[in-house]
């Protein structure tokens, strides 16, 4: 589904990704871990199409298409979704309006008819209940005045409504208490299926207690230095990252 080959990228002239390779197949969940500043967030932002990154070499293919040549909205309509580490507050745009506009933009792309407003509300309300989100949320402005946990839950709600083929989760677990983490994990597991794939960027192993990854990668110094199964995450939790760096340097 996603194939990243020798990706090099700069931010403000500084090289952050230095030849990154990653293969993600449909149905897989990949966890990307690594020290601060290793390029984890840069990677998912580049995949989502954020401006300000200069790709200097390499390629990204998504469902057979050149992902990097597509504007962000086309990526989203093709099934790429980024759950933001810091979801943006948008005063004056309410949640249901955004959800409906996003949902219909994606359906339009697939040649499906726009969903009737009432049917749409029924779908959204069911998913809100699943995510433990209060109904009053629908008419509130996007993320405005939300707590950190509410913002993260809202990201996962959007993901469940939009049902992306490829979900990129940027530290969705950070700043969550254990109850919120469980709900967020439950949302992520809900989307898990043979058709959907996910790339989760995380600092901590604890999310992986609730969402079992198929592959765990260590991203450091702009490259994937080591990959393994969920045992690798436990080992990282115990030993830190230094041994991976040392091993790579050897």
């Amino acid at each position: 589904m996603l194939s990243i080959t020798n990706l090099h990228a700069k931010v403000e002239g500084k090289e952050i990704l230095k030849g990154l390779n990653l293969e993600v197949k449909a149905g897989e969940i990949h966890a990307i871990m690594g020290p601060n500043g290793s390029g984890k967030s840069t990677l998912v932002h580049i995949l989502a199409g954020r401006e300000g990154y200069e790709v200097t070499a390499g390629s990204v293919t998504y469902l057979g298409k050149d992902l990097l040549s597509m504007p962000p909205e086309e990526r989203a309509r093709a099934g790429v979704f980024l759950a933001f580490q810091y979801p943006v507050e948008i005063p004056g745009v309410n949640n249901v309006y955004l959800l409906k506009a996003a949902y219909n933009a994606i359906r339009k792309q697939r040649g499906e008819p726009q969903m009737d407003a009432m049917d749409f509300l029924t779908v959204v309300k069911a998913k809100m209940q699943f995510m433990g989100i209060d109904p009053s949320f629908l008419n509130r402005a996007v993320n405005e005045g939300f707590s950190g946990g509410e913002k993260k839950r809202n990201e996962i709600l959007q993901m469940l409504v939009l049902e992306p083929r490829l979900a990129l989760l940027d530290e969705t677990d950070s700043g969550l208490d254990i109850d919120a983490l469980k709900i967020v994990a439950q949302g992520i597991n809900e989307l898990r299926s043979p058709e959907h794939a996910m790339v989760m960027v995380t600092h901590y192993q604890r999310l992986l207690d609730y969402v079992e990854p198929d592959v765990v990668h260590v991203l450091a110094d702009g490259r994937i230095l080591k990959s393994g199964d969920k045992q690798l995450a436990l080992e990282l939790e115990r030993r830190g990252y230094d041994w991976v760096l040392a091993e790579a340097a050897a």
Binding site: G49, R50, P71, E73, A76, F84, V88, L98
Partner: peptide, 9 residues
């Protein structure tokens, strides 16, 4: 960017 990342042109 947030809106565009949700499929809105």
């Amino acid at each position: 960017f947030y809106l565009r990342s949700r499929g809105i042109d």
